[in-house]
Write a protein that binds this DNA or RNA. Structure first.
Lengths: 250, 250
DNA sequence: CAGCTTACTGCGTTTTTATGCAGGATTTTC
DNA sequence: GAAAATCCTGCATAAAAACGCAGTAAGCTG
């Protein structure tokens, strides 16, 4: 088993269960605990997990209480993105959304006059939508993934496939002109794939930091999305390849 | 259980109940009181809790008492109910629940050791269940009713009917020996009816205040429920008619 | 392809951390 | 003011981490 492969597996386990033990991982993958520890160290250095004595925890574990500085930092950027995104929604539309902080920010930005229907499996997102007086909210049901606070599974995917939405807002973790959009959680990748299929227009939201980055699992090609929104101005050179690929940049 | 994990659990409990006892925590998590004390000390050093003799308090507690007396009053009652209810749940069970403050209180009371599957359409309830390390959560999807924060509609009912749960916990608004259980929201009545049908045992939770009261819409007869839980001792005369009707009173 | 370099992994040893336990000190409670 | 509960302190132990080292695999270069 290759190192990257192993680390992707570890990351997946962390995202799935919110915690991993060095000892059990070492048994599962048949490597020494030393190796696991080194992997966890690397993942921790990249900020992907939180290393603790005996194993590691998902970031979502302390997220609630920690992260004041970094959050506020990228918060401004996300606000910019949110405003651009919210402007796309018109009265009467059916809007499908994933979870994620960028989407949450968009939910908070919505005009109180907007009359639309929002469909999502993300619990934090739904909580935000609920606060809007004129928005109808449809919650996609299924098993709840604890770290991402979103419903995942076959039922959820089947339900999404029954929908024909006008717009799909997708928060994403990595986009690359060659490999397209990628992510690190199998279940969520399945969800996102279904959402793309069920929507007339796909809008991707991301902070510029994630442009030209890669994650292990493939969601779709760059050509499958319609609009890309970042905090940068549309003519930023970083975005040129995507504009050339025929994507509308906002 | 990892140290951070344990501390996160403690912190959660403190924020939830405003106070924790070292003794009960040590039992819940199965570690010595010394360890708990050290954890509390660390959390206190980080300013996250206030350590006191015998346990710790939430920070919000030290500030001026806001809580209106009535709230604290019925809160204590609901805690009593919650404890009785939580004792019914055993490992491996499938549990169907409605929403409501009494149910929420029960969710907060659940032992961290409990391994069970909770199924609900109530968003606040699901948020609570999600905090438990060993509980699987299934969210029932459909249109979100904004005032009750629960999913309602045909899809939700259809989904519930597919389930065979071991236990159903139902918070209720009114019970009367003659008219049975009644409520005032059409959609929620439909949901509750479906839940009763899909469960082996139906457990009703209510504060005694609502005993012998009436609401406009009929859910089921007294004979359709198996267990009734209130804050009163089981032999309270107010409950006698229900005991005589063959319901188990806790 | 031979030789060199580099990256990865496992092992033994040392160091650190986490936890429980015993005892005496301190606080709470009645 | 005495009994009970809770605390602190130091210590023992087991688990985990860190460190250095060596063997091996993989990659590169001429």
């Amino acid at each position: 088993m290759l190192k990257k492969e192993r680390q992707a597996y570890i990351l997946h386990q962390v995202n799935l269960h919110n915690k991993v033990l060095s000892s059990s991982l070492s048994q599962e993958i048949n490597v020494s605990e030393d190796t696991i520890r080194r992997d966890l160290q690397e993942l921790a250095d990249e900020g992907k997990v939180i290393k603790v004595h005996g194993g590691a925890l998902s970031h979502s574990f302390s997220q609630v209480y920690y992260h004041p500085t970094h959050n506020i930092y990228s918060h401004e950027q996300k606000k910019t993105i949110a405003q651009k995104a919210a402007a796309l929604i018109q009265d009467g539309m059916f809007v499908l959304t994933t979870g994620g902080t960028t989407i949450l920010e968009m939910a908070r930005t919505l005009s109180p006059h907007l009359r639309a229907t929002f469909i999502s499996g993300s619990i934090p997102a739904v909580l935000e939508y609920m606060n809007h007086p004129n928005i109808d909210v449809i919650l996609i049901g299924d098993r709840v993934s604890k770290n991402s606070k979103i419903t995942v599974g076959g039922e959820a995917i089947a339900k999404i496939k029954q929908i024909r939405a006008d717009l799909c807002f997708m928060g994403m973790n990595a986009i690359d002109i060659q490999h397209g959009i990628t992510d690190n959680d199998w279940d969520i990748v399945q969800l996102k794939k279904a959402m793309i299929e069920s929507s007339q227009k796909v809008v991707c939201l991301t902070i510029a930091e994630k442009i030209n980055t890669l994650q292990p699992i493939h969601i779709c090609n760059v050509s499958d999305i319609d609009i890309l929104i970042t905090e940068l101005p549309p003519d930023d050179p970083l975005l040129k390849p995507y504009r050339d690929a025929g994507i509308e940049i906002l």
